[in-house]
Simulated scan of single mutants.
Amino acid sequence: MSCALVTGASRGLGRAIAVQLAKDHGLYILVNYSSNLAAAEEALEEIRTAGGDGELLQFNVQTKTEVDGALNGWRERNEEKFISVLVNNAGITRDGLFMWMPEQDWDDVMSISAKGLFNVTQNIIQHMLRKRTGRIVNVASVSGMKGVAGQTNYSAAKGAIISATKALAQEVAKRKITVNAVAPGFITSDMTKDLNENELKQMIPMNRFGKADEVAHLVSFLCSDKAAYITGEVININGGIYS
């Protein structure tokens, strides 16, 4: 049975992506979450309501021993299942001007986004390489493409994801594994709920924030057979803000 692991899948973009993958590809979804069990259970219920299935998988992406323990343990219990799709979505923001930024805010953002990608992907990709198939989609951001004032840590973390995507794609292409990234702009979600949408949307040519399901459809396409010849790409989805 083919499975998809979506990190940070309990809310927002991650949840929308998990539901869309279940709908479009019939994948068994591993809903990763760090601490919010109630939200993760809601996400799983939404997947089942949409006609899919899956299970919860709790681990903190930034801790390699925790990631390996959870994934290796799951694999031992599910020998008939194979994670053919990985979406590295987990991430946080700790915004503030660089000159006053606490070291912990830098470390936390870099650790969850960039180190999290390393920890999870390195575990999963070993098995994709053996099976000679796989789809990896990394969730970056317009911040990683153009840099955003007040988000030096987040821009650095997402920039690292973009560069890692391009390099890793070249390493594994011969094994029919694709590695791509999507770079959303302002998307209506928990992460943007405190922003002034009326003010910010004036910067966006389409004059609105994007929707989580719009990003989810793009991720779903990149995970499909139709995208078999696309790899190492970063696809912007931002209403024209970075065009």
Rank of each mutant, 00 (worst) to 15 (best):
K146W: 07
K131L: 01
R132M: 03
K146A: 01
K176I: 02
V148C: 00
R175A: 08
E80F: 04
Q151F: 03
L117C: 03
S155K: 00
V139K: 04
K176P: 09
T152D: 09
K146R: 03
A173R: 08
M145F: 03
V120M: 08
V109A: 08
V87W: 14
V109T: 15
T165Q: 01
G159M: 00
Q104E: 15
M145I: 03
N119E: 14
S84K: 07
L117W: 06
Q122G: 04
E76F: 08
L129A: 00
N119A: 02
G147S: 02
V109G: 10
D95C: 10
A114K: 00
A114I: 00
N153A: 00
M110H: 02
Q170H: 07
E76I: 09
V139A: 03
G147H: 06
M145G: 04
G96C: 13
R135T: 08
E171V: 01
R130L: 07
R175N: 11
S155V: 07
A157Q: 01
Q151V: 02
N88G: 14
M99S: 15
N123L: 03
I124E: 12
D95Q: 11
I92V: 15
Q104C: 14
R94P: 10
K166S: 05
K174E: 14
R135N: 10
V172R: 04
K166G: 09
K176F: 11
R135C: 05
A164K: 08
F98W: 14
A140M: 04
L129C: 01
W106K: 02
I92P: 13
L97S: 02
T121R: 06
L117V: 04
G96T: 14
N153W: 00
R130A: 09
D95R: 06
M99C: 13
R94Y: 11
M145C: 01
I162N: 12
M101Q: 15
K176S: 10
M145E: 10
V139W: 15
Q122M: 10
R94G: 07
Q170I: 01
K174R: 12
N78C: 05
I161T: 10
V85K: 15
I136H: 05
I177M: 01
N153E: 00
Q151E: 03
G116D: 06
N88W: 15
E103C: 03
A160N: 08
K131E: 14
A90I: 15
G91C: 06
